[in-house]
Every structure is written in structure tokens, then in C-alpha cells.
């Protein structure tokens, strides 16, 4: 395996998986992401890390997928995972009730809310890093995160107060 793929495929897979919430689709989009990355590696500039650059590519690939599937607003979680053959990622989600509830709740959020929560809460990126990946300013990241937490709180009671 090449170093770029070996080092970053798991992180990028996680990002894509939580966005599309389907493991086999996530594998396909991961493949597209790395193909684009290798073909355009000459365009990679050192002003951002390789991982940030890969996340940006992955985001574009996912949005292209959403556009194709006309699923830009939301993907019903149950429908999507029921169609999926049981696999490591889905099994991991289903084996814990709290995980399953949060995963289900995320699927009901708008995509921009979902992705800001994936980056800020799951991947624990800084506001600046998140802004760089999403192409937003830091204020927009903070506002969208606040809105996302409020939206999440309405559909899932497990959100803690400090969030």
C-alpha cells in the first residue's frame, strides 16, 4: 500500500462513512477520493496538511454523490443501513444503543449540520481546521455548530448540556 493511502485511508473513510452512512458507498467514495488525490497530487500545496487536502477532496466527492442521488438534504438512516450487508462499521454502530441513537439522529440532520458535527465533535478538529476544510470562515463554523447542536438536541435527548 502506498504511504498516502496507508496513513490516511482510515480517517477519510470515517469522515465519508459518517456523511453517507453506508459502508459500501463509503468504500466506493473513498476509492474515488484517493484516485482524485493521486491524479492531482501535483496540485497539493504545502500550506495545508495532506489530511486536510484529502478531506476537501472527500467532501467534493461526497457532494457529487449526493447530487447524483438527489440526497442532498438527508438520508434516512434505517433505510440505508438495512440495505447494507452487516459489516464492521455498521456492526460497531449497532452493538451499542447510544451509538445507534446518535448515528440515527445525525442522519436526520441537514448535511452541513452533520458535517460540522463530524469534524468538530467526532474528529475533534479545531475551528480553524474545520473552516479550512469546509471553506467557511470561523464565525460560520461556530454558528453552524451551535445550530447543529440545537437541531440534534431536538431529535436526540442524549446531547449533554455543555454542548
Amino acid at each position: 500500500m502506498d504511504q498516502l493511502y496507508r496513513e490516511h485511508n482510515r480517517t477519510i473513510f470515517k469522515y465519508i462513512f459518517y456523511l453517507v452512512q453506508n459502508e459500501s458507498v463509503a468504500e466506493d467514495l473513498l476509492q474515488d477520493t484517493f484516485l482524485k488525490a493521486y491524479k492531482n497530487y501535483n496540485q497539493f500545496r504545502n500550506d495545508a496538511s495532506e489530511l486536510t487536502w484529502l478531506r476537501k477532496i472527500a467532501r467534493n466527492v461526497v457532494y457529487d454523490y449526493f447530487r447524483r442521488k438527489k440526497l442532498i438534504e438527508f438520508i434516512p438512516f434505517l433505510k440505508s443501513h438495512e440495505q447494507t450487508v452487516k459489516s464492521d462499521a455498521i456492526e460497531f454502530i449497532l452493538e451499542n444503543e447510544e451509538r445507534k441513537e446518535l448515528f440515527d439522529a445525525l442522519s436526520k440532520l441537514k448535511v452541513n449540520h452533520r458535517e460540522v458535527l463530524i469534524l468538530r465533535k467526532i474528529e475533534q478538529l479545531s475551528i480553524e481546521e474545520t473552516a479550512q476544510i469546509l471553506g467557511w470562515n470561523t464565525e460560520k463554523v461556530k454558528n453552524t455548530q451551535r445550530q447543529a447542536i440545537n437541531a440534534l438536541r431536538k431529535i436526540w435527548k442524549g446531547v449533554e448540556d455543555d454542548e
Binding site: 482510515r10 470515517k14 459518517y18 468504500e27 493521486y38 491524479k39 462499521a89
Partner: peptide, 28 residues
Amino acid sequence: KTIWDDLNELPRNEVAEKETWQKIEKNL
């Protein structure tokens, strides 16, 4: 440890990881 940290530990299927790499390599 929060539920968010828990989701961050999503496992990766090693067979799928290798298969995807093989597809990328073949395409390249």
C-alpha cells in the same frame, strides 16, 4: 470519554481496506 469519542473509534474492515487499495492501484 464521551459518545463522540466513542464514534471516533470506528473500526476499519482490513479486507475492505486492502480491496479498495487494489482497485485504486489497478485504476492508476
